Amino acid sequence: MNETIITLSTGEQIRTEAPEHQILEHITNNQGMMNKAFIVIGDVHIATAHIVKIESIVDEIEIKRPDRFEQVDLNVTPKQIEQTEEIVSPNQFELLEQELREAMQTRDIFALDTFLHDDLVFINHEGSYVTKEMDLEAHRTLAVRFTKVACSDLQIKPTKDGAVTISRIHLEGQEGDEKISGDFIYTRVWQLIGEQYQVITGHCTKL
């Protein structure tokens, strides 16, 4: 597993799975100057003025050469390849949904940035259109704070290159001056973008 270590002027080190380049994109402008007062790593708020070093740590993985090679059937037809590509495990999206809920509750901006497609189209429970940047900014500025994001039911409908998920979520928290408490139905469309499944569109309804 790769890690990024953020070293502060106090000598404290904070570890995160967020890539180094992603952290730098959030806190620097095109000239490489700091343009954010702080960043959020999980529940930790870090003042960018105290950051003295950001470095990536890559775990070394020992690769063992097999004693012998098993014979592999190379006579695979295009139809078999197509059928293999269409197989998507629902368990994979169950895990993605869980990680997304955790990112919502802990305000993990880097995880949310990874899960949400840049051209996300999301309609919230009030019927308002929400973009990816609007969602990230709400978490980044603490305009929205979830203290509980719990799933009581999850349905997964695999598609050729992703899945549609329908989940019942109990939310508790704060949005501005208003308290959030209740059950919501979230519908999300996950699609394989490059090597990463991302949410390309979604909808939320309050029960």
Rank of each mutant, 00 (worst) to 15 (best):
L171K: 09
Q198D: 02
H50N: 10
S152Q: 15
N2A: 04
K36A: 01
D73E: 04
A150Y: 10
E25A: 13
D119K: 12
Q196A: 03
E86D: 14
I6E: 00
H21V: 08
G202L: 10
A18Y: 04
E20Q: 13
R145H: 10
E60M: 03
L136Y: 05
I185W: 07
E12F: 06
I169E: 00
D118Q: 11
C151W: 03
T77S: 15
R68L: 14
I180K: 08
G11W: 12
E85N: 15
H26T: 02
D183L: 08
H170Q: 06
I193T: 08
R65N: 06
R68M: 14
E20F: 01
E175C: 10
A49C: 01
F115L: 01
N29A: 07
G32S: 08
G42T: 11
A49R: 08
K148C: 09
D118L: 08
G32D: 02
Q196Y: 01
N91V: 04
Q31F: 03
F122M: 05
F122V: 06
V144P: 03
S128W: 02
S89K: 15
Q92D: 14
E3K: 11
T205G: 05
F122K: 00
I180D: 01
T48L: 01
I166S: 06
F122R: 01
K206A: 13
T10H: 07
E86T: 15
I63W: 08
V52T: 14
T114R: 05
V88P: 07
L154F: 09
V164T: 05
D113A: 10
V88S: 07
E62G: 09
V149W: 08
